[in-house]
Simulated scan of single mutants.
Amino acid sequence: MLKKSVLSLITVIFLTAVTIISMSIYTLYSKKQISVDPKLKEISGIEFDKSNRLWAINDSGDDPKLYLLNKDGSIDKEVLITNAKNVDWEDMTQNDFGHFFLGDFGNNKQQRKWLTIYKIENPIDIKGDTTEAEIIKFTYPEMDGSPITPDRRNFDLEAFVAFGHHLYLFTKNRTEPFDGITNVYKVGDHAANFDAELVDSFKTCTTLEKLCWITSAALSPDRSKLVLLDSTSIWLFENFSGDKFFSGDISRIDLGIVTQKEAITFYDDNTIVFTDEEFKGIGGNTYLIKLDEISKTIIQKKL
């Protein structure tokens, strides 16, 4: 009798696990739009141009190029930035004027002291297949030349947005022990050398670093909403005051199964597009959600 009870319990646990996994897979793949060209298997940043066509960049190891995607995910055009290098391109954003910014600021080993952001015209205005960029350089004063101990490993970066006349940088936390905090730094949006100014911080989660890392950020076209992306979630910030992004309403949107989600942007004020990298046949897709249709978990309400 005991053996039957144990077997029944195991069966229930197994079926429950299968159900949870199936629901998690459906949560993500029900939002899938297209698979992107295999040449973009390490897609790390996306942005729409003035004609609402989608551009993308690759992570480290690729040429310093932007790729224009067709609606089926194939590549329509490539633009080479002739005075740039792709050391570790991690995100892409644009300002109110349509300038694109490309962040070469990946810092996995916390060893890069100076990081680079390339600023170019809106790609729709590039007539040929090459362009030159303004070069923005910055460093973290907190690194100050001293050894980066495990509890201070918060100088990696994969996410930023343009707001006003500044760029806001959201760190990818690699602290040991992991505390889940993304720091927000501010630099200017024009060619110069900057000391990044620490202006704020936000704690996502501490369950597991690979689930809580911030890998991309985006602002809605009307600049009223900020989103941060991690492997399982979108963090939505609304009704904030000025550049105090965490001062208003905060919600979490569940994205289901864990994949290497690396890029996010707004199509319009209500529509978000995000992507994941291809890994062992999983991912390599673009996904779409509508904020007025998606379920959200409230984390904080503005007082």
Results as ranks from 00 to 15, higher is better:
T297V: 12
G145C: 14
A56S: 13
P147E: 14
W213V: 05
G128M: 08
V161M: 03
G73L: 06
S247K: 01
N58K: 09
W89T: 07
N122V: 08
C205A: 11
S241T: 14
L9A: 15
D269S: 14
F97C: 13
D144I: 12
F14P: 08
L102K: 10
I117P: 00
K301Y: 04
N173E: 06
H165E: 14
S233F: 02
E121W: 03
Y267D: 05
V258W: 07
N83M: 09
L219E: 00
T130G: 08
I257Q: 10
E142W: 01
T204L: 03
P221R: 02
V273D: 03
G164R: 09
D222K: 11
T259Y: 04
W114H: 15
D125E: 15
T131V: 13
T275E: 10
L226S: 01
D59H: 05
E121S: 09
T175A: 08
L69Q: 05
N193W: 13
V187W: 00
A17C: 15
N52E: 11
A133M: 12
T265R: 01
G284S: 11
L2C: 11
F178M: 01
L226E: 02
Y29L: 14
G145I: 11
R53F: 01
K244W: 04
V199H: 03
T139P: 09
C212R: 02
S51I: 09
C212E: 00
L157S: 13
T275K: 05
T82V: 08
L15S: 15
D189I: 06
K296I: 06
I257N: 10
N86Y: 02
I120Y: 04
F237R: 00
S224Y: 04
F266T: 04
G61W: 04
N285K: 06
Y67Q: 09
A191Y: 13
D156T: 04
F163H: 07
T275N: 11
L226G: 00
I120D: 00
Q260F: 07
A159Q: 00
T215P: 01
Y185A: 01
L80A: 07
L157F: 09
D104M: 10
K127L: 08
A191V: 15
Y168T: 00
I264Q: 06
I299P: 03
K85S: 12
D189Y: 04
I81H: 02
D37G: 10
G145H: 07
K301G: 03
Y185H: 06
H190I: 09
G281A: 12
D249G: 00
T11N: 15
E134F: 02
G103W: 04
L66F: 06
G256C: 11
T116L: 01
Q33P: 06
H166A: 10
C212Y: 02
I126M: 07
H166T: 09
V12K: 15
I294N: 06
P64Y: 08
P147N: 15
E278C: 10
T16V: 12
F138G: 07
